[in-house]
Amino acid sequence: MTKNSSVLLSEFKNIINDKETNLYVLRNNNGVEAIFTDYGQRLISLFVPDRNGNMEDIVLGFNTLQEYIDSKEKYFGATIGRYGNRIAKGKFSIDGKSYQLATNNGENHLHGGDKGFNDVVWDVKKVTENEIEFKRVSPDMEEGYPGNLDVTVHYHLTDDNELEITYKATTDKATHVNLTHHSFFNLKGEGEGTINDHLLYINADRYTPVDEGLIPIGKLEMVEGTPFDFRKPKPIGQDLEVKNGQLTFGNGYDHNFVLGESPKNNKGLVLAAKVIEPTSGRIMEVYTDEPGLQFYGGNFLDGTIIGKKGKPYIFRGAFCLETQHFPDTPNNQNFPTTLLKPEEEYSSTCIYKFLVDKKP
């Protein structure tokens, strides 16, 4: 079934809320493999080559469906919705009507609520050797959100070693939507130590500072002269010990960056970020048409979760780069809007592209 992975299909066969779960493998002509389950649309494994052609699984996760269900880390590899990131106090208003969402992150709403898109079984509508499509209708008032939201997420593993994710959604009532992908990456391989020595570039002059609850305070601040300046590649861990209130609030990096408008690839998507892992030579580029990028440095990993190879997932043992609209946009009129109306279609694209630096 899969050339690289020890993950067994039998460990992902189950029935959840009367829906059967399954496992799906995408391959391209270069031997890159992406393995998904329809439970939360999770990316279970992603095997990409190093400079010597050795394939390694670079996303954190588990060998069994039950571990995903039971884990205190709910978001490994999942699609996040209806709203990726936080909404202050779980409240917003549309056309004068107030809505109360689940508050599952202290007093705030995080990643869709108590049972977000990561906790449901999706319908698989299309499977080819290198493409898969997931569909679901999120019913009106699920987790407090208005409108029946019809969602399609399409994954394409190209022969350019890109994992291209395309999100589409329509609604029958005005609602807020902010979908994203939540893989935890370590370009050395999952469970292979810290990511603090990975070199990170983020295409952003500004970021959205937060309060102690990691809710944006409504300002766009310049990164220049702060630990949030990744406009030239630097080790992720380089400035983590700098005395900075924002790093204290996030226990490290857990912030939204305001992306630049260029350079763009041949599909018109902006280069949002680039990560270089010097030891293996693996490089990951992130492209998107979203205005923001959440960079999370694995600050809540603590070594108690054991991954696919039996190795602990240590503090700052992974990073996430989530393309998105900004956190708490429904309560910030100066942020690019996340409001979706019945006559509109939500559309978002994210590409994770994998390259290799041949020089050791």
Rank of each mutant, 00 (worst) to 15 (best):
L43D: 00
G303F: 11
V210Q: 09
K308F: 00
N105I: 07
F354M: 07
F315S: 03
H109P: 01
T329R: 01
H255L: 10
Q66L: 13
A204I: 02
W122F: 13
D119S: 15
H181L: 12
G53V: 00
S280Q: 12
G260R: 03
K341R: 13
S348E: 06
L23C: 12
G260V: 04
N17G: 11
L293D: 06
G292H: 08
E261A: 14
I16E: 03
I87L: 05
S93A: 15
K19N: 11
L220C: 10
A174L: 04
F300Y: 13
G84H: 04
P227D: 06
F36Y: 04
P49I: 05
G53W: 12
D38S: 10
E190T: 08
E33M: 00
P360R: 15
E224P: 06
R51I: 05
P360S: 15
T288I: 07
D150Q: 12
L157W: 08
S183L: 05
K232W: 14
F228H: 00
K91D: 01
S45W: 05
N118C: 14
V124S: 03
Y145G: 03
P291A: 03
A204G: 00
L110H: 00
N244R: 04
Y39K: 05
L199W: 10
I305C: 06
K341V: 09
F319L: 01
E129W: 06
M141L: 13
I306Q: 00
S5P: 02
T37P: 01
L200Y: 05
V32P: 01
F257Q: 08
N29W: 12
P49H: 08
G218Q: 06
Y296I: 11
I202E: 00
Y39Q: 06
E344K: 04
G310K: 05
Y201Q: 12
